[in-house]
Amino acid sequence: MSEPSPATTPDNLRICVVGDELVAGMGDPRALGWVGRVMARTPAEPPALVVPLAVPHETTTALSARWETEADRRFAPPPADNRLVIGLGSSDLTRDVSLARSRLNLANMLDAAAVKRVGTFVVGPPPRPDIDGARIAELSNAFADVCLRRRVPYVETYAPLRTHDQWLSDVASGDGVRPAQAGYGLLAWLVLHNGWHDWLGVDAE
């Protein structure tokens, strides 16, 4: 019996999610993070193959250097529907990466994905109590501008969470930097209500 073509395989939709420890769900006692929660609310038939590719505390410089090699190994050949989700954190601000370099790193990733005809979706950095909020806002605005210029969906997480009581208390109850269960739930809600289903072409539950 011959093997099925890529168009009929059950993992026709493949989503690689790259980013730092937030993509990995670090600190979540349920081990779901925002990625697991989003996919649990994403109806698809057949279900998508989702591959989180996270490196804790990674800068956009390191991310832009590795994502293509790692994702290419997981993507299926045409006509499979390969997608890339980029979860951005704030490590650029703690590792002295300039704002211009941060912008360029994201731009290079989006442009390379476009050449490969890989659809992209970007999630911005949420608040962190150990980093000045104005700096995170500036970084998030820069990322949003890069995405806007390329018509790539961007989920702003800093602005809606910076004074959110549940987010602040959840971070404080954990390691003081990253969210726990409730915080990841809030991140997932923001993703689900900011273009996620439209981007995938599926109906919301």
Score class of each variant (00 low, 15 high):
84 L>V: 13
163 T>H: 00
186 L>P: 00
171 V>G: 05
112 A>Y: 07
183 G>V: 04
160 P>R: 05
190 L>G: 01
15 I>L: 15
33 G>N: 09
123 V>S: 01
3 E>V: 12
201 G>I: 14
6 P>S: 09
188 A>V: 02
173 S>C: 07
112 A>F: 10
82 N>Q: 04
17 V>E: 00
26 M>D: 03
117 R>I: 00
161 L>Q: 06
166 Q>C: 08
71 A>W: 04
163 T>C: 02
102 S>A: 15
134 A>T: 13
15 I>F: 03
29 P>Y: 11
29 P>V: 09
21 E>C: 11
126 P>I: 01
7 A>I: 09
167 W>C: 02
35 V>Y: 05
188 A>L: 13
107 A>N: 05
150 R>K: 09
160 P>T: 07
205 E>T: 04
48 A>V: 08
126 P>D: 02
35 V>A: 06
83 R>Q: 07
128 R>L: 10
2 S>T: 14
197 H>W: 12
201 G>C: 08
147 C>M: 03
64 S>R: 15
93 L>A: 12
5 S>M: 12
22 L>T: 07
188 A>K: 03
116 K>G: 06
95 R>W: 06
127 P>M: 05
83 R>D: 11
198 D>P: 02
40 A>R: 14
134 A>L: 10
57 H>N: 11
205 E>W: 09
162 R>W: 02
132 D>N: 08
202 V>S: 06
41 R>F: 03
55 V>R: 10
73 R>Y: 06
96 D>F: 13
165 D>R: 10
204 A>Q: 09
163 T>G: 00
161 L>W: 02
30 R>S: 14
191 V>M: 03
75 F>T: 06
37 R>K: 07
167 W>P: 01
149 R>F: 00
103 R>I: 05
197 H>Q: 04
137 A>M: 04
47 P>I: 03
45 E>V: 14
28 D>H: 06
48 A>L: 06
24 A>Y: 08
115 V>Q: 11
83 R>Y: 06
104 L>A: 15
79 P>F: 11
159 A>V: 13
67 W>L: 10
186 L>W: 00
116 K>Y: 01
110 L>R: 01
54 A>I: 03
32 L>V: 07
77 P>L: 15
176 G>Y: 06
166 Q>N: 03
108 N>F: 05
114 A>T: 10
53 L>H: 06
160 P>C: 11
6 P>E: 12
144 A>L: 02
161 L>A: 04
162 R>C: 14
164 H>W: 02
111 D>R: 13
102 S>M: 02
82 N>L: 10
141 N>V: 06
130 D>M: 07
30 R>Q: 15
97 V>Y: 04
192 L>V: 08
105 N>C: 13
69 T>E: 14
72 D>M: 09
176 G>R: 09
